[in-house]
């Protein structure tokens, strides 16, 4: 089975700059379980998933920022959290996603 980390390793060996997003917490009916991963390169190409597609766009944008800055960030998505991003999960779930540059 090929995972997002295999893709990450392959992209690194091709000299691409990448970031990895990982679901670290879920509440309610989140579609992807804790540990699910997404790998993103500087151009916004990605493999894997952290949700059913609802928040991938926002995660990819943040991941590109992390590639540029070399840092990490924890993002929260969900309908019930006032500090959460505007991008809600259509399923009504809540998730937290760790986004980190690989470098």
């Amino acid at each position: 089975m090929t995972t997002a980390l295999d893709t990450a390793s392959q992209w690194l060996s091709q000299g691409r700059k990448i970031a990895i997003a990982t679901v670290i917490e879920t509440w309610g009916s989140a579609p992807q379980p804790v540990g699910s991963q997404l790998v993103v390169d500087a151009e916004g190409n990605f493999e894997g998933a952290v949700s059913g597609g609802c928040v991938e766009g926002a995660v990819i944008t943040e991941a590109q920022d992390m590639i540029a800055s070399g840092g990490h960030k924890v993002l929260s998505f969900g309908v019930a959290d006032e500090t959460a991003w505007k991008v809600g999960l259509a399923c009504g779930g809540k998730i937290r996603v760790l986004v980190e540059a690989v470098r």
Binding site: L5, D6, A8, S9, L12, I20, E100, V102
Partner: peptide, 14 residues
């Protein structure tokens, strides 16, 4: 995450 850690994780799985 460092590339070294990424490779260590992949090696462990292999």
């Amino acid at each position: 995450m460092t590339p070294q850690l990424l490779n260590a994780v992949i090696t462990a799985r292999t």
